[in-house]
Amino acid sequence: MLGISRTSRYIAHAILILGVIVVAFPIYYTFVASTHSLQTILRPPLPLLPGDRFFDNYYQALFGGVGRIGGVSVDLLLFNTTVMALGIAVGKIIISVLSAFAIVFFRFPGRMFFFWVIFITLMLPVEVRILPTYKVMVDLGLIDTYTGLILPLMASATATLLFRQFFLTIPGELVEAARVDGAGPWRFFKDILLPLSKTNIAALFVIMFIYGWTQYLWPLLVTNRNDMNTIVIALRKMISFADADTQWHLVMVTSILAILPPIMVVLFMQRWFVKGLVETEK
């Protein structure tokens, strides 16, 4: 790069490397702890190199069950959390893109009123809606169900606003050309809008998947059975006030397994995610 000395580049790289070490070291330390026995973890200092219990600890957590959460295995917790995160992400995108499509491209009475009603929900904190939403879930018999975990979190005013702002940038000539070619609303939406929106959809999917994966308060309220817990709730239940009562080696294994799916989603969709956030010309 022009105008930047070699010393400045070295300093910049050193700062970046230091930042990576600071961020990554706790994750590495958790991984190291997940490969040691419980006795080794309870007898500090913990070694900085992985131990010889990697396969035993991970197999026990994934398939053997954890005592403090009713013997439920971590693979079931991962399945529950994946279903919830995917359901929330896909549901939010479908509802948001359809509602934004209706608000922008259709002219009907109360169109802007409905948009502002959706927008105003951004001003309501989640805590305000928790109790009435929980009451509805109880009345509908959706406690300890995947529907109860997913349905109340599917609507998203933020995603609707983002899609609306993008749809407003679609040239009117494109809409007219599609109409002249005989394309109806559904064909215009499917063949033109969705392909143009794929980077926005990818970026929102990553954000919403992580949002769903890290949910704590709502799954805590709507699940009572251990086999319906998400992995975040299970992690909290696995930790006791007394170190001797906590299976720390399994806690560390569960922590590592809990962060792997979001990392994989981000890595797999990184190119589309960044493009959807920074792309200005469609």
Rank of each mutant, 00 (worst) to 15 (best):
I170A: 08
I170L: 13
G172P: 12
G172H: 01
L174K: 07
V175W: 06
V175A: 06
V175S: 07
V175Y: 08
V175N: 00
E176Q: 09
E176A: 09
A178H: 07
R179Y: 05
R179H: 04
R179V: 00
R179C: 02
R179S: 06
V180Y: 05
D181C: 02
G182D: 07
G182Q: 12
G184D: 03
W186C: 07
R187D: 02
R187L: 04
F188I: 00
F188S: 01
K190N: 13
K190W: 14
K190D: 13
D191P: 06
I192F: 09
L193Y: 06
L193K: 02
L194V: 15
L194G: 08
P195L: 08
S197I: 01
S197W: 07
S197F: 02
T199C: 11
T199S: 13
I201N: 09
I201R: 08
A203V: 06
A203I: 07
L204A: 06
L204C: 10
F205P: 01
V206T: 09
V206Y: 01
V206G: 06
V206L: 05
I207Q: 01
I207S: 07
M208F: 14
F209R: 05
I210H: 02
I210L: 05
Y211V: 11
Y211H: 09
G212Y: 03
W213Q: 00
T214W: 05
T214Y: 08
T214I: 12
W218Y: 02
W218D: 01
P219R: 11
L220T: 14
L220M: 15
L220P: 09
L221C: 10
N224E: 13
R225E: 15
R225M: 06
R225A: 14
D227R: 11
M228D: 08
M228F: 12
T230P: 04
I231R: 01
V232I: 14
I233D: 00
I233R: 01
A234G: 08
A234F: 03
A234L: 06
A234S: 15
R236A: 12
M238A: 11
M238I: 06
I239A: 06
F241Y: 09
F241S: 11
F241R: 10
F241W: 00
A242Y: 05
A242G: 01
A242D: 10
D243G: 12
D245Q: 12
D245C: 10
